[in-house]
């Protein structure tokens, strides 16, 4: 194919042995968080992100089982994940389905006191609504930085931009967010 290069491999099932399984686990370990962050940044929904991530890796697994050598698994995964996220956006379930618990003010089971939980839930809901108004690219950087604890260089590698650009975009995103949160009274201006 194009950049991710899927070639037909005529070697006798190179992916069916134990080392191949370990290879796949390494790919999963290296790229699953990026994949998750990409979908999460789009929908701000952890469950959808996990589902799509799992589906993308399952497809990669099947592809390898069929004997196709994927030269750049990361690029392949990103492309498939993007397509899966697009499909999800078009799916009838998304259009007509139920709202996630956050939007229904659902209270997730945590070990906190109900009042603390309610406050946190309200605060997070406000933050979520602000994040939803932000560009997807900003959300992606914020997810990687704060959710995955990625360094600037790791984010740069994941998004294929340089570290300076990451710092700049991160700073801008944080500033935009702070302004909006301040305007809504979620945080106070210093």
């Amino acid at each position: 194919m194009q950049s991710d290069g899927v070639n037909s491999n005529m070697n006798p099932s190179p992916h069916s042995n134990g080392s191949s399984s370990q290879d796949f686990e390494a790919i999963y370990e290296n790229h699953s968080r990026e994949v998750w962050a990409m979908v999460y940044a789009r929908y701000l929904n952890a469950d959808i992100a996990s589902d799509i991530m799992q589906e993308a890796f399952l497809r990669l697994w099947r592809q390898r089982e069929q004997g196709e050598e994927i030269q750049n698994p990361r690029a392949w995964l990103m492309r498939v994940t993007r397509n899966l996220a697009e499909d999800y956006a078009k799916s009838a379930f998304r259009r007509n389905g139920t709202h996630p618990p956050q939007l229904m003010n659902g209270v997730r089971s945590k070990d906190e006191l109900p009042l603390e939980q309610l406050e946190k839930s309200e605060l997070f809901e406000q933050l979520r609504s602000v994040l939803e108004e932000m560009p997807e690219a900003d959300r992606q950087i914020l997810t990687m930085r704060y959710g995955l604890d990625y360094s600037a260089s790791q984010i740069a590698a994941a998004l294929e931009i340089n570290a300076t650009a990451v710092h700049m975009r991160l700073s801008r995103a944080r500033q935009r967010l702070a302004e909006r949160l301040t305007a809504q009274g979620v945080v106070s201006a210093s």
Binding site: L127, Y146, R174, L177, L181, T182, V186, V187, S190
Partner: peptide
């Protein structure tokens, strides 16, 4: 929360 707490909140 203060503006410097944005990081913590995030």
């Amino acid at each position: 929360e203060t503006r410097s707490d944005v990081d913590e909140l995030l």
